[in-house]
Design a protein around this nucleic acid. Structure first.
Length: 824
RNA sequence: GGGCAAGUGGUGGAAUGGUAUACACGAAGGACUUAAAAUCCUUUGGUCGAAAGGCCUUGAGGGUUCAACUCCCUCCUUGCCCACCA
């Protein structure tokens, strides 16, 4: 019988049961074996697995199984990123507890994963919402607090007035709250931050070590960290004792600075406008800016709003008194929250100056338009040129002037070369319930007191009212909030905010190395053995946040001397999206294909194979039901070959004929192709096509029945096919391996086939002959033939002669075993 | 505005300086069958031609080379990410 839909269920369940009962994928530290840690980004347990999970985890599973067959000690764990808002939404909508809802989802998810036949070490399964896990979040937080890397500060955050809670930037959609659609505003709140900027330099520098990360992820992180070199310049304020420090990357344009602009939130704004006729409009502008959503303010609106403060600043290079404005295009979070405006050489300043009729002065000559004046300029000139109107620096090229002016200002103490970063500290406070409680206590006597380590974990109370209104649910639980101060024993209050869930996922890869350690965050020896993750696989959407935070935590834990790796992930593969009809599969678009349905019809193996074959792993993948059926047919062809053509005959010797040699050649070539596709960056699509080519050769090989020698050769080719397929279609491969009468319990740990280079060397080769770059003939010639041998053969050819006859042969180029190229 | 990818048959894709279109899907024709499904065989980049064969073809244009999908320059298009970042 061929492999039928009845067999699918029987075979897949049989082997899933076998793997699970025998625990064959349990991994243990073994100093004598080379380790390989393969990891996929763990899922948020939202229900059943979807096609995106299937793709991500299939890629990881094939890598894990391939490495097992290659003799590595493989660690391949799975867990759940289980804290987060959907659980609270479920609580609000359906009245279930976030905990019950989450654990139910985890059960569904686990079942889905098992149906795919993934080779996980289930003994290391973890969920971040377990107190046994988040206890160590709290521990890390305390360690950071001890070292000044976790701190509390007041700053402006996204606030939804209707939901009465802060929102992460990603929860603000077009300036509106993602849940209630109300306009989000900025609010000053006292919040916990992690000092990721402590590691700015090494986070940037170490990107250079990540040679096996996609270049665009590197580029995105570089952008995000955003190191920029420039100059701080000090502007004294007229009639005040205060100085405004501006940051600029263009010190070469300092002589063209005709006004200064402050961010509305700049601490000097209120002071310097006080008592001037402009005070009222300044206050009104600050108010307006505060009530405008940050995302809206930063959305790149063309119009630049601003008002005059009534104060003047002194340009330190020429003593000019220039007006101080505030403008909504200046951001308090970047640089110093103040800029010197050079409208002629910065497009934003240009627009602002035009709108508010401010003075402009050209200080760099545009080579293409040397007579340009502020009146004739249509836009700012931002390119390279020579300085004018810049006193002793006139005539200097602006690139040279950047350094010269910076050095000169430093010497004069009116400025200083400086570096600014775009990266900001990470706000981790959330007024949410379903997250890790921040282990801090507020005491009227002692101030902010950390929870002592031996009191951890600070457990999440089960009975918090979750309504989505009225602020943090934990604040409403008296038994939780009220606590004795660990220092003085007097009444105190607990912190009621929880941690952002990205905290949880920033170190889970370390916890897997000893997932059940109740004494320490992880076993140092285990972590030393398994880390770093050799191959990490996940979506590009985590290119910045999760991957940057994980790098930050790794560097911090290295500083604690808990690990020696300075980077967590050696190789990174970002898998592409799964599309249907050209659009990403999503519930809202109604174009999802349920993996369960596909498994029911074709089996997990066919699904795995299709998803790997249809596109390279990094590319988008278009769902194609016909392609899926094609892969189903292929699995069947292999099954039939084992069932009907495999003889289990004894090995028989004898000289090989041409047909035999061809089969052996194809067998060895297939091993080579597949192995190279795997080693050269996991090109599963070409690996599978390589196996298909071998299968085609097997089908063509039709020896006479009863020829024992040829039967043995055929058996060998079929065995190779099954072994090469084992990482891709593990259930069927196990079944076939057993059908072939192999005594080994599981094909999962059979050695990956090796090819014989000698079998790939043939006596003759097929070469092409080109005349003036065009192919004019094909020849079968002895291997390694040189010009002396080839010249007469090629020139005798009618097709070649047609293009050579009567012309002088200028060159005769031989590329051994590939082609000859004749130039006439 | 900045950055990063990518552009190859009807479709997914292969080929990283050496015979473009491997492998698969789809399509057409055929075998088997009462019939269908399944399976197997043949054909399948375009164009001219009865054929032999010619010409064209990897987003467009140029360049380097005996030889370019591949390297260089200019441009176009699409996708993704970042962005009033001073």
């Amino acid at each position: 019988m061929p492999y039928t839909s009845n067999d699918i269920k029987r075979v897949e369940e049989k082997w899933q049961k076998y793997w699970s009962e025998k625990k064959i994928f349990r991994s243990a530290m073994d100093a004598g074996k080379q380790k390989y840690y393969v990891l996929e980004m763990f899922p948020y347990p939202s229900g059943k697995i979807h096609m995106g999970h299937v793709r991500n985890y299939t890629i990881a599973d094939v890598i894990a199984r391939y490495k097992m067959m290659n003799g590595f000690n493989v660690l391949h764990p799975m867990g759940y990123d289980a804290f987060g808002q959907p659980a609270e939404n479920a609580a609000i909508k359906r009245g279930v507890s976030p905990s019950d809802w989450t654990y139910k989802c985890i059960d569904d998810m686990r079942e889905g994963l098992k149906r795919m036949g993934f080779s996980y070490d289930w003994g290391r399964e973890l969920a971040t919402c377990d107190a046994s896990y988040y206890k160590w979040n709290q521990w890390i937080f305390l360690k950071m607090f001890e070292r000044g890397l976790a701190y509390k500060k007041s700053s402006s955050v996204n606030w939804c007035p209707s939901c009465e809670t802060t929102l992460a930037n990603e929860e603000v959609i077009n300036g509106q709250c993602w849940r209630c659609k109300n306009e989000v505003v900025q609010k000053d709140l006292d919040q916990w931050y992690l000092k990721i900027t402590h590691y700015s330099e090494s986070l940037l520098e170490d990107l250079k070590k990540l040679n096996n990360w996609p270049s665009r992820v590197i580029a995105m992180q570089e952008n995000w960290i955003g190191k920029s070199y420039g100059c701080d310049i000090y502007f004294k304020i007229k009639n005040h004792n205060d100085t405004i420090t501006v940051f600029t990357t263009r010190p070469d344009t300092i002589f063209g600075a005709t006004y200064v602009t402050l961010a509305p939130e700049h601490p000097l704004v209120k002071k310097i406008s006080k008592g001037t006729p402009h005070e009222k409009s300044v206050l009104a502008f600050i108010e307006k800016a505060a009530n405008t959503a940050k995302s809206l303010r930063m959305s790149g609106e063309e119009r630049k709003e601003g008002v005059f403060t009534g104060a003047y600043a002194v340009n330190p290079v020429n003593g000019e008194e220039i007006p101080v404005w505030i403008g909504d295009y200046v951001l308090m979070e970047y640089g110093t929250g103040a800029i010197m405006a050079v409208p002629t050489h910065d497009q934003r300043d240009f627009e602002f100056a035009r709108q508010h009729k401010l003075l402009m002065r050209v200080v760099i000559k545009d080579p293409a338009n040397p007579n340009a004046t502020p009146d004739t300029m249509a836009k700012a000139f931002e390119d390279a040129g020579v300085l004018v109107n810049s006193k002793q620096f006139d005539g200097t090229s602006n690139e040279e002037a950047k350094k010269k002016i910076s050095d000169w200002m430093t010497a004069q103490k009116i400025g200083k070369g400086s570096v600014h970063w775009r990266l900001r500290d990470w706000l981790i406070s959330r007024q949410r319930y379903w997250g890790t409680p921040i282990p801090m206590i507020y005491c009227k006597t002692c101030g902010v007191v950390p929870v002592p380590e031996n009191h951890l974990p600070v457990e999440l109370p089960k009975n918090a009212p979750i309504t989505g209104e009225g602020g943090s649910p934990l604040a409403k639980v008296k038994e939780f909030v009220n606590v004795k101060c660990p220092k003085c024993g007097k009444d105190a209050r607990r912190e009621t905010d929880t941690m952002a869930t990205f905290f949880d996922s920033s170190w889970y890869f370390l916890r897997y190395t000893s997932a059940h350690n109740s004494k320490e965050i992880f076993d140092v020896k285990e972590a030393a053995y398994w880390m770093p993750v050799n191959q990490y696989i996940g979506g590009i959407e985590h290119a910045i946040l999760h991957l940057l935070y994980s790098r930050f935590f790794t560097k911090f834990l290295k500083d604690l001397k808990l690990i020696s790796a300075s980077e967590p992930f050696d190789r990174l593969l970002t898998q592409g999206m799964v599309l249907k009809d050209g659009e990403v599969m999503s519930k809202s678009k109604g174009n999802v294909v349920d993996p369960d349905e596909v498994i029911g019809k074709f089996g997990a193996d066919t699904l795995r194979m299709f998803i790997l074959f249809a596109a390279p792993p990094e590319d988008q993948l278009e769902w194609n039901p016909a392609g899926l059926e094609g892969n189903w047919r292929f699995v069947n062809r292999v099954w039939n070959a084992v069932e009907f053509r495999y003889t289990r005959g004894a090995a028989a010797q004898g000289p090989m004929d041409e047909q035999d040699k061809k089969l052996e050649l194809e067998r060895n070539a297939a091993i080579k192709r597949v192995t190279e596709s795997m080693e050269g960056g996991f090109k599963f699509n070409t690996a599978i096509s390589g196996i298909m080519v071998l299968m085609n050769a097997i089908d063509k090989y039709q020896p006479n029945p009863g020829d024992a020698r040829k039967a043995a050769l055929l058996d060998k080719a079929i065995e190779t096919t099954v072994l090469l397929l084992a990482p891709f279609i593990p259930h069927v491969a196990e079944e076939l391996w057993q059908m072939m009468g192999k005594k080994d319990a599981s094909v999962a740990f059979i050695a990956w086939p090796q090819f014989d280079e000698a079998a790939l060397v043939t006596d003759t080769v097929r070469i092409a002959a080109q005349v003036n770059g065009k192919v004019r003939g094909e020849f079968v010639v002895p291997r390694d033939a040189d010009e002396a041998v080839l010249r007469p053969i090629v020139l005798a050819d009618e097709g070649v002669q047609r293009h050579v006859a009567g012309k002088e042969i200028k060159k005769f180029i031989v590329v051994k075993n590939k082609l000859v190229s004749i130039v006439v």
